[in-house]
Computed example of a mutant assay.
Amino acid sequence: MTLLSFRDDFLANADARLAQLDVAGASETDLLMAGALYKMAAAVGQADILGVSLAQAIRPLTGAQLDAWLSEPVNAALLRAALADPAHRLLLATDAAVVAALAASPAALALVTADASVLAALLALPLLRAGLLASAVGMEALLASATPLALLAADATWWADYTASTALTATAIPAMTGLTSPSGVAAASTYSSYNADKAMDKNSSTYWRSASGNTGNQWLKYTFPEPVHLHTVSLINYASSYGVEHFRVEYSDNDSTWQAAMADTTLPMDATPRDFPLMAPGRHRYWRLYILDGYSTTYVQCTEFDLKGWL
């Protein structure tokens, strides 16, 4: 018998026994016993049985077993209700074995990430956040949707923990020695003397330069060999009036239709390395630094452009 079934059976029996009591004709002993039963029923009814019972059920399960358990609608409903209740949620999210099972179960993670307020409350609990970030299944659930990414990016500690995760294989633009070597493809909207790979060679003494007279609506693009999820763009501006002034990062699945991975941003006119978070759910192959304008009207230059994330 589970705790939930015990509670239900106990309350049903207590209710039936109390309903049979003839208060007017009952003895003092009967009234005392009925009072004690009433107090017991009240305590059992108010006890945190849901969270305790769920923790006991989930604790020994693997991710696959929890997926199977949650395929039963009544079990999914119980977990959904527990996650929505602060006390039950805290009980589950501070139990290491429960967290391990949740983080390994796509079905459980679908419930965890379905409600932004619930997810925010769960991410605030260090044990559960660490469990999600240490699990490949947990990371896949987080990077698949805009809501988890926005919540993570809103907290500097959460974002640092997220980008430091080693649950997935890290990737970045390699140190380019040409437009197509060592891998991927570097390209630019225009160039003069210094092509796109010069901004992707991990060398701060080289840079890309647009064609003369082209300072607005320019871009540096890198095509990964396969779709990737990216969380950070790293930039070193050209430290003069020829540097980038306003930019954003965009991504595409077909090299034709582009979506913004961040808001339009100002890049100061100096050579300080800077990182900016990217909000692009899922994985995509084509990425570009879209330069809205530069500080000069002659041409625009960028020293270093890098993208970081996971395969």
Score class of each variant (00 low, 15 high):
His88Glu: 13
Arg89Asn: 06
Leu90Phe: 15
Leu91Gly: 13
Leu91Val: 15
Leu92Ala: 04
Asp95Ile: 03
Ala96Cys: 14
Ala97Pro: 09
Ala97Lys: 14
Val99Thr: 03
Val99Gln: 02
Ala100Gly: 13
Ala100Arg: 14
Ala101Tyr: 01
Ser105Phe: 01
Pro106Glu: 01
Ala107His: 02
Ala107Cys: 08
Ala108Val: 01
Ala108Gln: 00
Ala108Thr: 02
Leu109Asp: 04
Ala110Cys: 13
Leu111Glu: 03
Leu111Tyr: 05
Thr113Ser: 11
Asp115Ile: 08
Asp115Pro: 07
Asp115Arg: 06
Val118Ser: 03
Val118Asp: 05
Leu122Asn: 00
Ala124Leu: 15
Ala124Ile: 12
Pro126Phe: 15
Leu128Glu: 03
Ala130Ile: 08
Gly131Gln: 00
Leu133Trp: 03
Leu133Ser: 02
Ala134Tyr: 05
Val137Pro: 09
Val137Thr: 13
Gly138Ile: 01
Met139Asp: 11
Ala141Asp: 06
Leu143Gly: 06
Ala144Gln: 12
Ser145Tyr: 06
Ser145Phe: 05
Thr147Pro: 05
Pro148Gly: 09
Leu149Asp: 07
Leu149Val: 10
Leu151Pro: 03
Leu151Val: 06
Leu152Ile: 02
Leu152Ser: 01
Leu152Gly: 00
Ala153Gly: 04
Asp155Ile: 06
Asp155Trp: 10
Thr157Lys: 08
Thr157Phe: 11
Trp158Asp: 09
Trp158Pro: 03
Trp159Phe: 09
Trp159Val: 02
Ala160Asp: 10
Ala160Cys: 10
Asp161Gly: 06
Asp161Trp: 04
Asp161Met: 09
Tyr162Thr: 07
Tyr162Gly: 08
Thr163Tyr: 08
Ala164Glu: 12
Ser165Met: 07
Thr166Phe: 02
Ala167Asn: 11
Leu168Ser: 15
Thr169His: 14
Thr171His: 15
